[in-house]
Each structure stands twice: as C-alpha cells, then as structure tokens.
C-alpha cells in the first residue's frame, strides 16, 4: 500500500509517495533523498550518528518511521550552513578539532544545535558532557566537542545580550 506524505526538509517542502511503511526517516534521507550527511552508525538508537532535528528537537532518525512523521519539519546537517557561511557550531567544531574521522560529526553537530535550543546545559561543561552523551565518538574527540559547544554557546550568549541591550 502506498502512502502519501509530505515533509519539510531543510526548508523545502517535499511530497512523497511512500511505497513501504517500514522506511525510517534515516533511510528516507539517505537512500531515497540522497541526503547522506546523516549517518547510520548502529540503526538502534545507541550511537547518535543519525541525529536530526524534527520540529526543532533532536531525535535519533533511525527510530522514526517516516510515515508517522507526516507533516514534520526536518533539519539535517545539509541545512545548517548558509552556503559557504558555516553555522557557528560547525565552525567551532573545526576550530577545536571536535572530530577525527568525522563520521559521528553530523550527528554531534545536530545534537549540539538541538541542545543549545533546549537551553538546559548553558555554559556548564559538566552539563554539556551529560547532554551530549547520546552521541558516541569512537575516535575520542569529546574534549574538542565540549570546547566547541562552549565556544558556540558563548557566541550565542553574546549575541543575545547584544540583542537585548
């Protein structure tokens, strides 16, 4: 049975006919929309490499059936930069070497962006570590990841202060 669904992916509305209800958002993005920035590390919600934002919240896209997310607004790593202008989190990941092999990186960055929007961790390194613990990094780039988030958070705090001043 075919199901028609529509999603907003990185700002663009996409309508699909889904021929199989088993397709996850992760496999839809990677294998059908060829948006391969989002990675599959475990396919079982245990590594975080597939993290995307759905309606503004970070989730594991391997555990989300596409059909159940009809109408959702999806942001993936491909939708984060504005052309050549990197998102501050992306730039901070480069500056602080928040990755080595880079495979977990799209998930880490999406998770960091989601975490900053959740506003639970602030600029507390310990809370950042805890709130980023859903993203495994086998190379062990955690120290750089925390420093990158701290820098991006400091930048965000500064610009919100400027706005309110």
């Amino acid at each position: 049975m075919n199901h028609s669904i529509s999603l907003t992916v990185n700002g663009a509305r996409r309508d699909f006919v889904l021929d199989d209800p088993r397709v996850t958002l992760l496999d839809l993005l990677r294998e059908r929309l060829h948006l391969t920035g989002t990675k599959k590390g475990c396919d079982r919600g245990q590594c975080g490499a597939c993290t995307i934002l759905v309606d503004g919240k970070r989730i594991n896209s391997c555990f989300a059936l596409a059909i159940s997310h009809d109408g959702a607004d999806i942001l993936t790593i491909e939708g984060v930069a504005r052309g050549d202008q990197l998102h501050p989190v992306q730039a901070a990941f480069i500056a602080h070497d928040g990755f080595q092999c880079g495979f977990c990186t799209p998930g880490q960055i999406m998770s960091a962006i989601g975490m900053m929007q959740e506003a639970q961790a602030g600029n507390d390194p310990e809370r950042i570590r805890e709130c980023m613990s859903g993203n495994l990094c086998r190379c062990g780039a955690y120290a750089g990841i925390v420093d990158a988030v701290l820098e991006a958070q400091a930048g965000a705090d500064e610009s919100s202060q400027r706005r309110s001043a």
């Binding site: 975080g48 970070r58 989730i59 594991n60 555990f63 989300a64 989601g114 709130c131 613990s133 859903g134």
Partner: peptide, 9 residues
C-alpha cells in the same frame, strides 16, 4: 534515562 535524543522522542 537513555539519551537526550531518546528522551525527546
């Protein structure tokens, strides 16, 4: 419990 991503969902 779990991770932030899983708790969000």
């Amino acid at each position: 419990g779990a991770s932030a991503q899983l708790r969000n969902a």
